[in-house]
Amino acid sequence: MTRWLPRTYLTLVYLLLYVPIVVLVVFSFNDSRTGYAWGGLSLRWYESLFNNRAMVNAMWNSLWLALSAATVSTVIGALTALALHRYRFRGKKLLNGMLFVVMMSPEIVLAISLLALFLLVGLQLGYVSLLLAHVTFCLPFVVITVMARLSGFDESLPEAARDLGASDFTMTRTVLIPVIMPALLAGWLLGFTLSLDDVVVSTFVSGPSYEILPLRIYSMVRVGLKPEVNALGTLLLVFSLIMLMLSQWILIRSKR
């Protein structure tokens, strides 16, 4: 079969995927207020972004939330993956299935169920409720990432450690953790990004005491064309690109 047809097709789809992103980046440097026409090069939208106190505050809140949600979910997720990998126990299939269901569930279903729970137990909506919700939807992704790493892992190593008299816990700490480190980092980065991007769940479980970036962006884009959004989007893009390259670099390096 001719080779140019598939290639052209691939190129075309990639173009479509990237046009909006390129437009966003280019327009973030646009001086014009109206948003559609080109009015010259300018950094004014970046400037106005950083002069907006509420915006900067929401940025810090979001970063802090993403940092903590990624960390907590990585700790719990990694331990779960280890347990699933190493031990036989009753309900193992159920646990696996449940994590899969959480991953597949539409976010909105998760969102309202958590809202119902938080209201029932009287938890104030704010940082804590956001953290619990974000950890919940990040968890299965961390488990999967770590499991993938473990399944390709040479079983003779822990056996050897055990033969040498190491307890399970010591073995985990000294042998397993270093091996799964790349997966931990990749899972952490994935959780970080998921948390930073989430609108649907956060809409339901956030309160006025803790404003976060995605909700701030949401209220901005609903008002109409705001050039500040382009600037913010570009910053977020650069930020996620760095994170993504970092995680790929870690994964590739670990394979060698």
Binding site: L24, D197, V221, V229
Partner: peptide, 15 residues
């Protein structure tokens, strides 16, 4: 693109 904020990408489509 999947790692880029989805709201912002939706907004870019509006442009």
């Amino acid at each position: 693109p999947f790692w880029t904020n989805s709201l912002v990408r939706t907004y870019a489509l509006k442009l």
